[in-house]
Every structure is written in C-alpha cells, then in structure tokens.
Design a binder for these strands. Structure first.
Lengths: 395, 395
DNA sequence: GTACTTCCTTCTTCGGGAGGACAAAGTTGG
DNA sequence: CCAACTTTGTCCTCCCGAAGAAGGAAGTAC
C-alpha cells in the first residue's frame, strides 16, 4: 500500500502554501495581512499545517521595535519532481517546496524509443537522484512531453513525433511507480510555466513562450494559467504557413514555419551551404564531423560566417512573421524566446523584434518586450514542478 | 441624485440570478440541487432577492406526486441595454433579465462623427425605446465599440477607425446619462459573448468568432470569458499578413487580410470588375447606383455571376489561410463566422472550411465545427447585455 | 526600570449555513 | 371520501468557522 503524502485540508491552507512557495518565508503577522485572515485563524491553520508536516518554523526575524516575529516556511523535506521529456533528451530535476532546483540530471534520449524505454530512463534518473540523497518526501511529479496531451487522462494524444506514445497512460503508470500525484502536460507549456515562476515572466498575466528547437512550439499563458485549447494542441505553431512555395514539411503541407527554421531544416540548409561552399566555416565543420546540426549553424554565425548569419537572419524573419500575426491576435504582455536555437542569440532576436515591431499593430507592440529566456535548460523542469505543486497545494 | 438599482448582496444571490438568467425559471427545490445549498438557505436568499425586487414568483409547476413546486424567475421589470456601435451603424436593444430582446432599433451612423454625436444618437434611440414602454428599470448597459478598449477605464484606446474617440470616457459619460452601470468593450468581443449566450456557441468553453464586415476582427472566448489581451487589442486579425506582395493597407503594411477581403477591399475590387467588364452583373449595378459595396458582390455571387463567385472564393481562401494558423495556435472548440460579408453564405464558408481543414493540424480540426452565425444582427447587442448582466449579477 | 511596540495566543462572540422536524399541498388507491 | 404516501416549503436548533477583544510574551527606547 502506498502512503499518501499530506495535502492541505482547506482553501486557506492551500493559499498559505502557495504564498510560501512563491514569495518565500514569511512571518505569521505578514501572512495574516496578505491572506486577509485574522491572526488567530492563521495561527490555527499554521498549527495544522505543521502537524501535517507541510510547514515549519524557521527561527525569528530581527525585531522591528517589539516582539520578534516567528518566520514560517515550507517543510524542509518537501520535494517535487520536474521531468522534461524532449525530442532528443530527458531532464529530471528535484526541487524543494519553493521550487528551487536541488538536483538536475540531463541525458540524451530519443523519444521515438517509446514510452516504456524513456520512462524507465526517467525512473533510473530519479533513483540516481534518490541515491544522492536530495530526494526525500516526493509530494508530486510533473512531466512535460513533446506533443499534445489529454489533460483529463494525462496521456499523449496523437503526438506526431512520439510514435508509440499515443494514449499511453503516462500519468497512471508514473503515479504508480513514483507513489505520488503526477501531472502530464505539453513540454512547451511547462517551459512557459517555468518562465512564469522563475524566469522573466514573473509579473506577466498573459504571455507567450516561443520555443525553437527540433520543432517550433508556443506555450500560452492566459490569466496566469496554461491555456491548452480543447484538444490540448494549442500553441502548435510550427506548421503555420509562412509561404505558399516553401519546402515540403513532414506534416504534408508546404511552407510551414518548421520546414524553414526547425532543427531539421537548419541542419538541412547547413549541409547544403557546406557542400556548395557558400559557407567555408560549415564546410570545414562537415569535414570534421561528417554531419551538421543547428548548433553548428549557431557556431558559424557566432564566428562571423556570413552565410550562417544570413541563415539565422532569414529564420528570424520567418519566425517574426508568424509571431507578428500571433501578437496581433493574442496581444500578449511579453514574448519569451527559448529553445536550442535561441542560443543563436541576438542576431536572431534582433530580426524577430524588427519584423514583429514592424508588422504588428502599434497598440499591441507599444509595450511588448521580446526577450531571450534566461533560465537555460531548467525552464521545463521548473514549470513541471510548478504545475504539480499548484495541484498539490490546492484544496 | 441617482437611485441605484438593486444588486445581489452575496455570492449565493449572484449565482441564483445567473442561473435564472441563463437557464430560465426554476423551482426552489431545483435551485437547491443545482446551487448545492440547503433548502432553508435558498428560501432565505430568495426572500431577500424578492425584497430587492430582483426575482418573483411565477406560479406553480404541475405536481409530480406531491406538493406543487413554486416557480421562481427573474423580476419582470428587470431591463438591460445592449448597444452595438459599428463602423457604419448603431444598434440598441432592450432585454429582460433573461436577455431576451424586447425591443431593437438599428440605424445607420458613421462612427467617424465622433463620440458626442454617436452617443447622442444612442441616447435618442434609448429614449424612443423608453417611449415604446419596453424600457422600465434599467439595471445596466453594455456598449460595444469598433476598436480596442481599456477595460479599466471603459474608454477606447487609440482606435484606428474611430477618430475623436481616443480616451473619450464612454463609460463615465453614459453611466451618468443612463443612471446605471455601464461596461464598454470591443464590438467583436460582444458578438462572441452573444454567441456564447444565445447562439451556436452555447456549450463552448473556448471558441473564436470571426467577424467579416467593414473590417475583419476576431472575438476570443477563453474558459467562457472574453479574452482581451493586455492592451485590449486581442483579436485584431485584420492586419495579419497574408502575402508579401499584396495590396497596400490603411495600416501602412501590405498584404493584410483586410486589404484583401474587408468591406472596402471588396468594394474596390467590385468596382474594378465592373469597369473592366469581367462581371456583367456588377457592371449593370454600377450603372444603376454609381457605387458598389460588399453587398453588391454578395448579390452578384448569389445570382451566379462567375467573377463575383470567384471573388468570394478567393476571399474565403485568404480568411481560411489566416484562420488555419489561428486554429493551430488557439485550438478552439468552435469557430463562428459572422458579419455582413457572412451573408455571402455557403460559398464563403465552404472555402474557409476547405482551407482550414487542409492547412491545420488534424488534432485541432478533428472535431472543429466552422459555422455561420444564426443570430443575425443581434449577437452584438445580446452580448453587450450579457456582459453587463454578468457584472450586475455578481457579488 | 518604565513606557511603548510588536507579535502571538486564548477566550468570547457572532453569523452563516446545514439539517431535522414539521407543516402544506398534492396524488393515488381503496 | 379518506388514509397513506410524496414532494415541497418553512421553522427551529445546532455546529463550526472566523473575527475581534483581551491579555500575555518578548523586545526596544529612553
């Protein structure tokens, strides 16, 4: 039999927990002010939360002219798992209650190996983190997968790049294995949630996270929550048409954004540029490695290779074109660019900005920051942990 | 001094009112079941609501084997005003508490005449409805305007086609004049709310309303509520790029959707088709009227004029192309096509459907109805009334 | 050491809401 | 036409959650 970890008993406890998670340790008095409850009530609920093992005392603050206030914080042994299953890699992180990353493992992995193989890999990584001692009492795990997900069931639904995963009961299986609540969602949505929690989007209500990696996707946050659409496929912008007469895409149509500027497209164009000699840098790389990836294009552009810079520019223009339309439609308060290709850096960003600011309506762009993510590879795992902690910290 | 009409005193009363509004009259027992409150509590709150003049008894239902249940419904004299200010016309409607339209006036009007002229027109129409006797106790008025709106202030914000309206205090002024709460929002959002309340979108959580009229706009409903974006300009899809080398748009860019298929664009193309003799039907019309509008194109297409049908088809393709991208991004559960040009009917709809179903992802289109609105011209006014009733019927 | 601040806890009080008992108003069947 | 049963509505009591007062605890300032 599986011992369930404690959860809040009412909405007040849930509010207190979320507050301690997001804003860090607080005194009882401050909590009363923020939660708008009487001190006696706060004290009562804190006692109960302490009895549940969810919060603890953390010493006393310096006096402000009177009795020192007792600082309350989330229990020390509270742990969440954040799992980010990408197309070509798996990340697993352990966080404390405040969602600070205590341990993080990243391994290359091919999602096409199917759910059992990949999820076994995940469990192995969790076991390794457990051996390191950072995993204590796991209160929940969030799992991001590179495809649409049925939120009701926690299963991938007809994911294009995940053969064998269709309707595989990820939530069910992992909840069984890990012995804790598990939530599954799209990886890009998770990254957006990560940006909302710990990244540049902390004060944003409505924003977009554009991830440019193997594929191109978009996480959508509406009123501070993930928006997934009715089938869980919202944000799938990789197959928006950029041009009628573009390259043929894996989806069957032609001129898709992804066919211009996804990881595969970039590798393809890099190869062509190397072979034709238009890019000496890439040609040299090809000679060394016998294959080229998007990273090589980034390196070439960083090294000043004119053709590679042109490729990045051109890609930025395509992304910007699509994004300009989405900005008109969605009117976000912020756009965060993320993903492997985001490493291409400011040449890419500059081009995207230029197109969006020119092509979108002034009112929508008037106060619209377009920025590169500063979370590195941790946005996904933090977002996954955040999602499940939202769930666990709810009445 | 202005006498304020009654409003609910707590959340239970608010819930009861919204239930009676949307689902119609109910017995006390049924209310108790749906609202999940004890009968005594329901009775108490209903007494209070009756004392406030917000609900009334409406006779007894047939017995179901025991004591007959007393039917409760919204007060008979409850009235909301729905105002839809379009680019070229003004609609004003009076509804009862259930948002059934009791009176409706529509007049041509040019929004460019400025706020005072247009709003005076509105007040005149309200006075006329008042004279007809259908306006009794007005509990609120919703006003839709053809441009972005600051929801906080209830004022238009830098509206492109509403010169003189920028930051004009519409809510303030009209609230003063009408002596009731006033809410202002974008007209297309109002139409979407109308579809949600009384149209084909009644069971939809997330859907889009595409309005093709003088301009082209999109109302966005997320989780049953209007989504307006951070500046109130969300849904402004008329200036999404369709093609690089398209006609120049009023916004300064070229290839905007609106420049291809808005009312003005259609009139322009109709004129060209008539003059060049490519459309005999339109040429004849031009000789009669000396000017052509989008309606003439509709008439020509309905009459089987080949060139006009081609124009509609081509326009449908452009709209479909943009919509396909939005469907990928937003993954709605329904798309409603509305507006004057929607009168072009099934040729337009067929073309839009064809493009969307071909260009969007199967998962997003798998169960996506794309339909023409069946609310005629009333969606806007009903939605406006609905918005303000949501507000008035809240604690 | 005394006055003042700030913080926490205990006790009392208040009110919202549930739920049972009961009354009212039907139907059904003998 | 009356008794038994059903459904609905109302009255009354009890319980619990939460606020707020009062008082104790712990510090600072002078």
């Amino acid at each position: 039999m599986r011992r369930m970890t404690a959860r809040p008993e009412n909405v007040h406890q849930a509010r207190i927990l979320r507050l301690l998670r997001t804003d860090g340790p607080r005194s009882r008095a401050e909590l009363g002010d923020v939660v708008a409850l009487s001190r006696s009530k706060i004290a009562l609920e804190l006692d109960r939360l302490a009895a549940l093992g969810l919060v603890r005392s953390d010493g006393f603050a310096a006096s402000r002219g009177g009795r020192r206030s007792e600082i309350v914080r989330l229990a020390a042994n509270l742990r969440f798992l954040g799992v980010d299953i990408g197309a070509t890699s798996v990340d697993v992180a352990v966080t404390n209650g405040e969602l600070e990353v205590l341990g993080h493992l990243s391994r290359p992995a091919d999602v096409r190996d199917g759910p059992t193989a990949v999820l076994d890999q995940v469990l192995e990584m969790v076991a390794k983190l457990r051996a390191d001692g950072v995993v204590t009492e796991v209160h929940g795990a969030g799992i991001g997968v590179p495809g649409p997900v049925s939120l009701r069931d926690g299963t991938p639904i007809a994911p294009p790049i995940m053969p064998g995963w269709d309707r595989y009961p990820v939530r069910e299986a992992m909840s069984q294995e890990l012995g804790c609540p598990v939530l599954v969602n799209n990886d890009v949505n998770m990254m957006a949630l990560g940006e909302l929690h710990a990244g540049l989007a902390r004060s944003a209500e409505d924003f977009l996270l554009v991830k440019i990696g193997t594929g191109i996707g978009c996480g959508i946050i509406v009123r501070g929550e993930i928006y997934s659409g009715v089938s869980g496929s919202a944000g799938d912008i990789g197959h928006i048409r950029v041009d009628d007469h573009g390259p043929v895409c894996a989806c069957g149509n032609s001129g898709c954004l992804e066919a211009y500027f996804g990881g595969a497209a970039l590798a393809r164009d890099a190869l062509a540029a190397a072979r034709s000699g238009r890019s000496p840098f890439l040609a040299e790389r090809l000679a060394e490695k016998s294959a080229l990836t998007a990273e090589d294009v980034g390196a070439a552009a960083a090294a000043g290779d004119a053709h590679a810079v042109g490729m990045v520019r051109e890609g930025g223009r395509k992304v910007g074109t699509v994004l300009a339309g989405l900005v008109n439609f969605f009117n976000p308060g912020l756009v965060v660019i993320s993903g492997g290709v985001a490493g291409l850096g400011h040449a890419l960003l500059a081009e995207i900005r230029s197109v969006v600011y020119q092509r979108s309506l002034p009112l929508a762009t008037g106060n619209l920051p377009i920025v590169l993510s500063d979370l590195g590879g941790t946005a996904g795992v933090i977002g996954a942990a955040r999602l499940v902690s939202d769930h666990v910290f709810s009445a």
